[in-house]
Design a binder for these strands. Sequence first.
DNA 1: TTGAGTGCAAAGTATTTGCATTCCA
DNA 2: TGGAATGCAAATACTTTGCACTCAA
Lengths: 156, 156
Amino acid sequence: MRPDPPANLQAAWRQQIHAAGMRVTPQREALLAAAWRLGHATAESLVVELARNDSSVNSSTVYRALEALERIGLVRHAHLGATGPTYHIAVESPHIHLHCNSCGRILSVGVAEADAFVRQLLARTGFEADITHAAIFGRCRDCLVAASANGGDDGV
Amino acid sequence: MRPDPPANLQAAWRQQIHAAGMRVTPQREALLAAAWRLGHATAESLVVELARNDSSVNSSTVYRALEALERIGLVRHAHLGATGPTYHIAVESPHIHLHCNSCGRILSVGVAEADAFVRQLLARTGFEADITHAAIFGRCRDCLVAASANGGDDGV
DNA sequence: TTGAGTGCAAAGTATTTGCATTCCA
DNA sequence: TGGAATGCAAATACTTTGCACTCAA
């Protein structure tokens, strides 16, 4: 969990909402701050995080606000696991999500790791991949080590 | 939509269920056949497909059967879109799913396309990726062409 | 014969929608 | 002040669970 967003960032958010012809409301500001603190958050977890922090926001408002804020590019969603979409602040540098099937953790690595793959895919199949949009599933280093220490058993 | 599975394949399924100490029921046979016909199917779509074909199976049975059949390796699931998990018969040769954000189609390409990427990811981050488990989002060739013909507009 | 598997109905969870009210610009 | 945005409550969609009954082995 990160600390609250810096004031200048919050100001930029307000400005961007306003520039899009939309209204700056306390709920939207609280929502953006909560998304910033959580890093990766489902709609559900945002509702909970907001309730924890004084400012509770109705869940239907959260869904509608996320949709509106995504439309103007302030937040993005990705598919990180079995659950529904996960939202994050758009300014974060783009990264690939690696979802460990054993421990459930989400690791992030830079998009550069996949550059060659994306280029090759485009050249050979004509498909322009947005590698950041969905997690890649698998097993993280720690769980691989634990599994092999465990006699090579899966441990899943 | 594929034709019904060949008899020898169905026999192999029965054998594998039996070998796992589980019971071969008409519902499970119908479910496997439906999954084979659909290729990629959500639990929901399997319920519908089964209802269409004489043999309707209760949805709770479908969920429980999918879980049981996945446990013994006869079916697998993947995350292909915004919706829940998608099931497919396990014998299909492993493939990467490419989900087009514009037209919604799911393209399949061989895992060989990602071999270098998976190897590099393992070497550099220690993460063993199962690239087949989740779709990669992006835009297919047709939609890219359509978008550029459209003055470079997104068209989404 | 018997218990794994099924169907049904009810509950749970996540998300959406209609409408009256609030409050930002 | 006007209409975008919110809160509430009801509706919807999907999945899970408890329980009595069925049927594969």
